[in-house]
Design a protein around this nucleic acid. Structure first.
Lengths: 168, 168
DNA sequence: ACAAAAAGTAAGGCGCGCCTAAAAATATCT
DNA sequence: AGATATTTTTAGGCGCGCCTTACTTTTTGT
């Protein structure tokens, strides 16, 4: 029994790739995985053997590759993280979908579960109650482009910035 | 000339450690760095040689370790990313400072610059114009604990969730 | 000054994850 | 079926980043 925490980032990528490929083709081939991950086919074999050893995939040489129940559960968890991150980046921060996807790929292995959950809550809040939340559409996008245009805003005198102590 | 992008996560950690240690002691010793990064002193030597070769630190065997101007600039960029992330996690998402710091450590090497900048903007917006933004204090924290309590909220019938297509 | 302690360095090893080149298994075509 | 093309696996190598062990340099105490 392997917990999702003990997988390396690379192994998570393989699991995620297998999951996505399996959605469309019933089973994944090594070649597909290699193409999906921009990796050589020979690199895939080793990864598959490890995932097989952990019983996350059904793997036998020259045979079809499928996820075990446990593997699928973990893969879904990973995909969930990716989607949650991407959704947050797009809906809240206003990042382009394409950039958000790329960023999510980089980040997904390194954001603690607790943070993901909080961030889902936040996106949900923004999406659910637009009158209270700040999405890109409801104010933040405008602020991003034009800054604070509220004449009466008492903060506009004392600007706040994040600076390193010794920064010039 | 080395750009900040070409440094490995590990090298960034070393640079960051040297920066923080130098803030308090004028110069860093290998032992301090080892302790700071929970790494053996012998592992430090190799890293220092690489950073020295890239002219990010002034390094000579048995001598004091200081940052070059370029090294300091990059270190400040790294620290900035860490602080920006942490601030966002705390002020916007309401994560405990301690957890936020740990999370920032894990994430800081993997969040694209453009995302960091957007996220700084967002935190700034929330902090700057609390009447418009949603910080932990101004509504989101309450929502997190109690959910949407607006009786008239027309969204509360059609719940939205992030789900994998095949998820049970 | 000189032995003892502390700090730093060198050499060699290990795991991970990728690569290339070549061999083996499988699929396809006539 | 037999030749050919495709896919997969094996074998061996490389870089990174960490480790341990042993050695050298510097600092410290008397």
């Amino acid at each position: 029994m392997i917990s999702a925490e003990s997988l390396s980032a690379s192994q998570e990528d393989y699991l995620e790739a297998i999951f996505h490929i399996s959605e469309k083709k019933m089973a994944a081939r090594a070649k597909d995985i290699a193409k999906y991950l921009n990796v050589k086919a020979s690199s895939v074999t080793g990864a598959l053997r490890i995932l097989g050893k952990h019983e996350l995939i059904n793997y036998a040489p020259y045979d079809l590759i499928t996820l075990t129940d446990e593997g699928r559960a973990i893969a879904e968890e990973i995909v969930y993280r990716h989607q949650a991150l991407e959704k947050f980046l797009v809906n809240v921060l206003g990042i382009d979908r394409e950039d958000a996807d790329a960023a999510a790929c980089k980040m997904e292995h390194h954001v603690p579960k607790a943070i993901i959950e909080r961030l889902v809550k936040y996106a949900e809040y923004v999406d659910h109650c637009p009158r209270g939340g700040v999405s890109w559409e409801s104010g933040f996008g405008y602020y991003c482009k034009h800054g604070c245009t509220d004449q009466d805003c008492e903060r506009c005198t004392g600007e706040m910035e994040i600076k390193t102590e010794k920064q010039l």
